[in-house]
Simulated assay, not measured.
Amino acid sequence: MGIQTGNYLTPQRLNTRSVRARRTNTLSLSSGAVTAISFDAEDFDNSSMFAATSTIITLPIGGLWGFAAGGVFASNGTGLRRLLVDVNGSGTYPWIDSRSAVSGDNTAITLSDTHVAAAGDQLQLFAHQNSGGALNLLAGVRFSAWLIEF
């Protein structure tokens, strides 16, 4: 895949494919477990990239894709909180954002980057915490992807 050159705006370049999935309720996370986040709502999806109650966003065409995720963990002053993104079920998590727990306040994490994808690549968002006990990932977690260039 090469980035297109020139100052040409074509219908293909303007037809940005994008999706944003959202979780509408809390998710209890066991301490030390890496947990796939299931989503139950879509804010938009103009290329059928997400199926309701799924954990996966499927990128329909190859190209340079942007993605972003954000979530808030319930207040607890012990350990770390992480959001992790996996590609095609590899279990290697090439993108991770980690924050120390915040005592007396919720811990918010955002993560964004780009991925050079092949058609059919699947992105999946995971959460991890190690507080020593169960901890909630609060409602409102979002996971989105958008085509930058094909």
Rank of each mutant, 00 (worst) to 15 (best):
A69W: 00
G71T: 06
F73T: 02
T58P: 06
G79S: 04
G66C: 07
G62I: 01
A52C: 14
A69L: 07
G71R: 03
V85M: 05
A74G: 13
P60W: 03
G71S: 08
L84W: 00
M49Y: 07
A52P: 10
I56F: 14
P60S: 08
G63I: 05
P60N: 08
A52M: 15
G62Y: 02
A74S: 08
I61V: 15
A74W: 11
M49H: 03
A68K: 13
T55G: 07
I56W: 15
G63H: 04
F67I: 06
F67W: 13
T55Q: 11
G77E: 07
V72L: 14
N76L: 08
I61P: 05
R81K: 13
T78K: 05
S75P: 03
A69R: 00
T55V: 08
T58Q: 10
G62K: 03
I56Q: 12
S54G: 08
A51Y: 07
R82W: 00
A69I: 03
R81H: 03
G63L: 04
F73C: 03
M49C: 10
W65A: 08
T55S: 14
F50M: 05
A69C: 12
S54V: 06
R82T: 06
A52T: 14
I57S: 04
G62Q: 05
T53I: 14
G70Y: 13
V72D: 12
G66K: 03
L64N: 12
R81S: 05
A68T: 11
R81P: 00
V72C: 15
G79V: 08
N76S: 09
L59N: 10
I57T: 03
L83Y: 03
W65C: 11
I61L: 10
R81A: 06
F50R: 06
G77C: 11
F73A: 01
N76W: 07
F67E: 01
T55C: 10
T78L: 12
L84C: 02
A68N: 12
T55E: 13
R82H: 02
L64D: 11
T78E: 07
L84F: 02
L59C: 10
A74Q: 13
L64E: 12
W65H: 06
M49A: 11
